[in-house]
């Protein structure tokens, strides 16, 4: 992995039926395919809930938005609850520009995302 590369981690939650996806760094066109792959791997397991923890994402562009929209559509299709959480103001701003902040379930923290 090159220095400074952005990554996506998949965490097992201690809560049954919950998967947590943790992208880190900048989610742009160079990294969003990794996020898409991670979300697809998780969704293939059909968890009841997927939490995307965005606390470590410092920047996102429309390729990241597109990836999350696709994941949300897949989640709805399979009755999975998809929740985004802990995004910073800069990331939230792009959801607002694209008017997608009301399309997603967005929680302030990881703990809240388990219940949202």
């Amino acid at each position: 992995m090159p220095a400074g590369a952005d990554t996506v981690e998949i965490r097992e939650s201690d809560r049954p039926g919950v998967a947590v996806v943790v992208p880190k760094g900048d989610i742009d066109m160079s990294c969003s395919p990794q996020l898409r792959d991670a979300l697809r791997r998780v969704q293939d397991k059909r968890p009841a809930r997927i939490v995307v923890d965005l606390a470590s994402v410092r920047y996102m562009d429309s390729s990241g938005l597109a990836t999350l929209v696709e994941a949300m559509k897949n989640a709805k299709q399979h009755q999975t609850r998809l929740v985004l959480c802990a995004m910073n103001d800069k990331v939230l701003a792009i959801f607002e520009i694209a008017r997608l902040h009301q399309y997603f379930v967005i929680s302030d923290s990881l703990d809240q995302a388990y219940e949202a």
Binding site: D61, S62, L65, A66, T67, K73, I97, A98
Partner: peptide, 18 residues
């Protein structure tokens, strides 16, 4: 049109917005 929620096609909207 943003009411049609789907992946992609947001770049030009974002550029013109900001």
């Amino acid at each position: 049109e943003l009411d049609d929620v789907r992946p992609g096609g947001l770049g030009v909207h974002i550029i013109r917005e900001v």
